[in-house]
Amino acid sequence: MTAISPATLLELYESMVTMKLWDQTALRLLQEGRVLAGYHSGRGQEAIPAGGVAPLRRDDYLMYAHRGFGYTIAKGMSLAAMFGDLMANTAGATGGLGAGIPHFADPELGILGQGGTLGSCFGIATGAAFSAKYRGTDQVVVCFFGDGTANRGAFHESVNAAAAWKLPVVWICENNGYAVSVPVAESTAGRIVDRAAGYGMPGVRIDGMDVTEVYRATSEAVDRARAGEGPTLIEAMCHRFRGHYEGDPQVYRTEEETERLLALDPITNLEARLVADGIATDERLGELEVRVQDTIDRAVEEASSAPMPGPERLYEGLYV
């Protein structure tokens, strides 16, 4: 197993801290009534978008999931644009269409967007991977989805075709144990990772709370895809700390369960490791957090100054 350099570990840490502070800031804006959107907190699952996007090149493609905005943060999306979409104003990446469900996209960064009907990511990821192969580039697609989404029929059609055609895709399933309120054991036969064998591609189940495991598994899968060796399925076992959405009463699990999860925090665990291994000091990590929060605050400020769209916005961008 290849070692991850201290510099990369620090980058992964900063990436996760950005996601956590973004989440805190979004929740604060939500409480202040400044967010015109639903929000699915990604708290607890930061290791997967951080470790799963870091191995990508700028021109690689990203199909992201709806939990938190970590994927697009890691791919380099403008923070102000994402805040603008939360506030539904014209600073948003969509230019004022907002983010009931996020539809951020940035073709320059390979961010291909997101569908609100979960599972539609699969077909689009297969098509983008086909496109890369057709055009003779060595671009790779990473497609994130939850354990619940894995049960949509589009999974079979698209994962099968991508495997049959040896397309450069990495399928990353975030298994946090619940499809909204329904436990995986009640809704899903067998293990999701075992489906890989049925499609004749490698599959690996990893600890999705450990960013180094996610980074390693994704790097290997990306290398294989780039080399023309086809897709891989990664099942990253993880936990979400908050409800499915803000306001979720979480009647399907106990408070004790959610409190126990906090000991598994991927960020505090990496922090302890960085300090114990002498890669960083508490002081340095504290400074990093202050710097990241400052960047986020400036992005909020920038986004806040933009006007709301007028009714004419409804008619823009539909046809070419």
């Binding site: 539609s120 098509g127 983008a128 086909f130 589009a154 059609e157």
Partner: peptide
């Protein structure tokens, strides 16, 4: 065979992946 492609019997994929190809520079 690179430009004229038999697909599986998978209409969800046929259309969904055509969208993925179209937004990344092809004209399916």
């Amino acid at each position: 065979p690179g430009r004229v492609i038999d697909t599986p019997i998978s209409e969800t994929m046929i259309v969904g992946a055509a969208v993925g190809a179209a937004i990344t520079g092809l004209r399916p």
